[in-house]
Design a protein around this nucleic acid. Structure first.
Lengths: 149, 149
DNA sequence: AACGTATAGTTCGAAATCGTATCAAATGGA
DNA sequence: TCCATTTGATACGATTTCGAACTATACGTT
């Protein structure tokens, strides 16, 4: 049947927008005052993927403007969670390194979220989440590839 | 098996955050200069659900602070897309009504998105979206009910 | 009716996002 | 080597988000 109704995109994106808002609230409720979701995202990225990366690398990874990354990093630095050092391989550039406090805050936040997610798992079958995850991943990959360069 | 791995929440929320960002970019690319996603969301809500509603009603519907709704409505009014009238049933309150221009812009944006979604549907099986939609809806309902009052 | 409380909307200020402009350093072709 | 172009980072300004404080109106109890 060749009528794939495109309005399902609309509905899915609508639900996704609401869930994003609610999940961001859950995260930010567990962060110290003055830190918000983008700060945690950067901490997490450095911890899991790429400690020592340059600001541009991370701006590209999250698809945010360079200026936004500068601002986020300034906040993290002011809280002593990351350290900015000159990049020995490029005089224009810097490297972003986690501090011990940064690593600790990340772990502590992950733990707090784990507790909350366990509570949620009592109300929502995680098998259903496991089932939709690959679809979300493929959707993200498709949209990522489709955005105009 | 009392250990449903809660980290799947983390992964799903992560994908949802990225998709939200990408889908918002798709929408805003099709809006006139000076209008962003929240403006469209309000237009759409008025059109589909509740023309003539009060600002507080809509703030509650979208779970944003009253002040944010004031700001969004001011932008829509400046563009001639909505009209704010006093509420005959409550002297403190107002009613938000769509103008013809507001209805037209909403239709036109929906149409443009429809074209884009049809393009996406060529690259992504909409059956998979149909399948995840109820899960997203139930997840949203669960989280909505779980947020602290 | 009178008064205390609750509610609708706005104003104001702080923080965040992001486009433009700017500067410094790297790169590459003549 | 020289110089135009590119690239990393920041400064600045406009817009957005949102909490706190404020005004005006409605409501409920007496």
């Amino acid at each position: 049947m060749p009528d794939p109704n495109p309005s399902v995109f609309f509905e899915v994106f609508n639900e996704i927008g609401i869930i994003e808002q609610l999940s961001r609230a859950v995260l930010e409720a567990r962060l110290p005052d003055g830190l918000i979701a983008p700060h945690f995202t950067v901490l997490n990225h450095l911890c899991r993927v790429a400690d020592g990366r340059t600001p541009v690398d991370m701006a590209r990874a999250f698809q945010v403007p360079k200026t936004s990354m500068t601002h986020t990093l300034k906040g993290l630095e002011a809280h002593g969670l990351v350290e900015l050092r000159p990049n020995p391989e490029d005089g224009r550039s810097k490297q972003v390194w986690l501090t011990d406090a940064g690593r600790a805050l990340r772990s502590q936040t992950i733990a707090a979220l784990g507790t909350e997610f366990a509570r949620m798992a009592a109300d929502f079958d995680t098998e259903r989440l496991l089932a939709i995850r690959p679809v979300l991943t493929d959707l993200r990959i498709m949209m990522d590839a489709a955005r105009d360069p």
